[in-house]
Design a protein around this nucleic acid. Structure first.
Length: 433
RNA sequence: GACCCUGUCGUCUAGCCUGGUCCAGGACAAGAGCUUUUCAAGCUCUCGACACGGGUUCAAAUCCCGUCAGGGUCACCA
């Protein structure tokens, strides 16, 4: 039975690196029909916070990782103590007194060669004579990381330990403890680290690192997962877009790369857009509603869901992040569009009589339409442009800016249609002298 | 400093195990163009890498050795 665990320490949010470790553990458990266990490593009573536990659990759920069992190390202190006492009795550990008279339990590290077989890296050899004696129970009575970790992994019958590269040098210390305690040694797989763009560890300086920040910024969990998957693993066949169900089928821990990967926000944006394009508009609308309320663009009582769905369909193919909708589509919700000054300067010369005339005539032709629909709006526009002897784009850009305040956006005739006749007219008339 | 891990386009990677099909393939980014309606959308094209040096071999990105570079760890933090 495959049993893996993800063991975060609640001294901060779940970050990208932790999310990736959780992903690979979860994937491995799913593809082997095993169990995914969550263990909260809250032995540091100073730095561990309940709010971080909540945040971590929330983020894991958002990513779609459901755990089969959950444990808290802070509830298992007697267990660690019991094993430490055993080691004391068997003479493998000793007591050290601090100047204040407090006692810590220390493991006497024997000198020997330790071989670790890593599923990703192959054999790694260590010489334990280079490792100093290890504290098991600190003088405040709490266990150290390496000690609690080994006892828990053994008691929880973890079969495969999949964790970050930064734990490689902890492994020989832990293997020694497995042997001293008479536990069976599990399989190890050390994942390469994710680096920031500056080459060092991923940090706040190099971009948001908390998983929850990505959710807040409009990334879909499917997209984040897909991106994280591609960091140090490849499904082969030049595939870039791969869903989690398929990944479960194709994943093999032995094919994970050994090299650390640099986190690239641009590629994440691209993947996010790929998912946004194909996402269910209903689902996107649900996520957008609170954001739009937040920006006071809509209110609970007064908004048309059908209309919002139309707008989502109009924009979803071109959004890198869902949140961009709020800025890009604001003109649909506001009484007056927020004007981009540079765009106004470039396209809406108030002293241009031709522009004023064209706008006036276009407003008339909107009024004369039998049916206010996209195709009719376009043909009326084409007719007008032909009559005036203008190029279409000479008028399209100014109209877009007048209606939306921006130079970018969906096709103009869709904009005019969804904005509605009255509002379109009103915004155009503003520029008619 | 010691120990450990790693080294293919700017970035993520395929290929490496089982040498020849690789003067190295794909994706993101960047640049150019097309789409005569913009664009962060779409399409086309371009730029761009086997860290270096030695071996082994008829033949090396692929095997071996060394060098260099990057990263990680050396806590009564986890």
């Amino acid at each position: 039975m495959v049993r893996v665990r993800f063991a975060p320490s609640p001294t901060g949010n779940l970050h990208i690196g932790g999310g990736r470790t959780a992903l690979f553990n979860w994937l491995f458990s799913q593809s082997n029909k095993g169990k995914f266990i969550l263990r909260i490593e809250d032995t540091d009573q100073e730095r561990s916070k309940k709010e971080f536990v909540d945040e971590i659990l929330y983020s894991l759920k958002w990513l779609g990782f459901n755990w089969d069992e959950i444990y808290y190390q802070s509830q298992r202190f007697e267990t660690y103590r019991k094993y430490a006492d055993n080691l004391l009795k068997s003479g493998l550990a000793y007591i050290e007194k601090s100047p204040e008279g407090k006692e810590a339990i220390i493991y006497k590290v024997p000198a020997k060669k330790i071989n670790i077989r890593d599923l990703i890296r192959g054999e790694i050899e260590f010489d334990s004579s280079l490792i100093k004696d290890q504290v098991l129970i600190k003088s405040d009575g709490t266990p150290t990381y390496n000690f609690a970790c080994v006892i828990d992994d053994a008691e929880m019958e973890i079969s495969h330990i999949i964790r970050g590269d930064d734990h490689i040098s902890n492994t020989p210390k832990q293997v020694l403890l497995y042997e001293a305690l008479g536990f069976k040694i599990p399989f190890f797989a050390h994942l390469p680290l994710i680096m920031g763009i500056d080459g060092g560890r991923l940090s706040k300086r190099t971009g948001a690192t908390a998983i929850s920040d990505y959710r807040k910024n409009g990334y879909l969990s499917e997209a984040l997962l897909n991106y994280l998957l591609l960091l140090s693993w490849s499904p082969g066949g030049n595939r870039e877009i791969i869903g989690i169900e398929e990944a479960v089928k194709l994943f093999d821990i032995k094919t994970v790369n050994k090299t650390s990967a640099t986190f690239d926000l641009k590629k994440l944006d691209w993947i996010n857009n790929q998912y946004l394009k194909n996402a269910d508009p209903e689902k996107l609308a649900d996520e957008l509603i609170p954001l739009l309320e937040d920006k006071k663009l809509i209110t609970k009582e007064k908004f048309d869901r059908g209309n919002l769905l139309d707008l989502v369909k109009l924009f979803q193919a071109r959004l890198p992040r869902l949140n961009d909708f709020v800025d890009w589509a604001d003109f649909f919700f506001l009484d007056e569009p927020v004007m981009d000054e540079a765009a106004v300067k470039k396209y809406l010369d108030a002293d241009n009589p031709l522009l004023s005339k064209a706008f006036g005539l276009f407003v008339q032709s909107l009024d004369n339409l039998e049916e206010y629909e996209i195709a009719n709006i376009e043909s009326a526009f084409r007719q007008l442009v032909a009559d005036l002897g203008m190029e279409a784009k000479q008028l399209i850009h100014p109209i877009r800016v007048a209606l939306t305040g921006k130079t970018i956006g969906p096709g103009l005739f869709e904009v005019i249609y969804y904005l509605g006749k009255e509002r379109s007219k009103k915004r155009l008339l503003k520029w008619v002298r």
